[in-house]
Computed example of a mutant assay.
Amino acid sequence: MEQLGIEGAWVDTPRVFADSRGSFHEWFKGAAFHGSTGQEFGLAQANCSRSARGTLRGIHYAEVPPGQAKYVTCVSGAVLDVVVDIRTGSPGFGTWEAVRLDDTTHRGLYLSEGLGHAFMALEDDSTVVYLCSQPYAPQREHGINPLDPALAIDWPDGLVPLLSEKDAAAPTLEEAGRLGLLPSFEACGAYRRGLVGSV
């Protein structure tokens, strides 16, 4: 696994074994994950979403603690997957990184608790599956508008973003900060250290 520039985010490019019958790859291995990240990943929920070309989902995150870490891959089609550092007090606050996930490279993206997550479908019927460390809890879930001009995420040209009403009405990063909705870098680190200490 390769650590991204945003602390708490990694990308994994697996070895794919292909022949005339198709292909096989291991898209998540707990021991290898722990060896690369030093973190444990407790699976609480697995999600699957299918999206039309141009669909833009996110930026989503959960309150910390406990937050919701995610391990994301695209099993059909292609998406531009984006991780956003929304943790107040973080050296990288307000920065983002994009990774293409598709059914050719089979890369996976891991996001620690407290990071924002969004993706845009680059093809019709793009299917994303993701493992979550905590179950969905509506009262702890929040969003930031993925078209926030201050974030200036470089979404692909030529695609008209298709957003849910909820995502389109989400606050900007600055507004979410003023409302006290953002996780802190310190709280995220303390929670992560507590998890490691409890293993």
Rank of each mutant, 00 (worst) to 15 (best):
M1R: 06
G5K: 02
G8M: 05
D12N: 09
D12T: 09
T13D: 05
S20E: 15
S20Q: 14
R21Y: 11
F24L: 15
K29W: 14
A31K: 07
A31R: 12
H34G: 10
S36D: 12
L43G: 11
C48L: 06
S49I: 08
R50Y: 03
R53Q: 08
T55V: 15
Y61L: 04
Y61S: 05
Y61C: 02
Q68P: 01
A69P: 00
T73R: 14
S76W: 06
A78R: 06
A78K: 03
L80V: 08
L80K: 04
T88I: 14
T88R: 14
F93L: 03
E97L: 13
V99T: 09
R100C: 05
R100E: 09
H106A: 03
H106I: 02
R107P: 01
Y110L: 08
Y110G: 08
G114S: 12
F119Y: 07
T127N: 07
Y130H: 13
Q139T: 06
E141A: 04
A150S: 13
D154Y: 08
D154S: 12
D157N: 14
D157Q: 08
V160L: 04
V160A: 03
E165P: 11
D167S: 15
D167T: 09
T172W: 10
G177S: 12
L179K: 13
L181E: 09
A187H: 09
C188R: 08
C188V: 14
G194L: 12
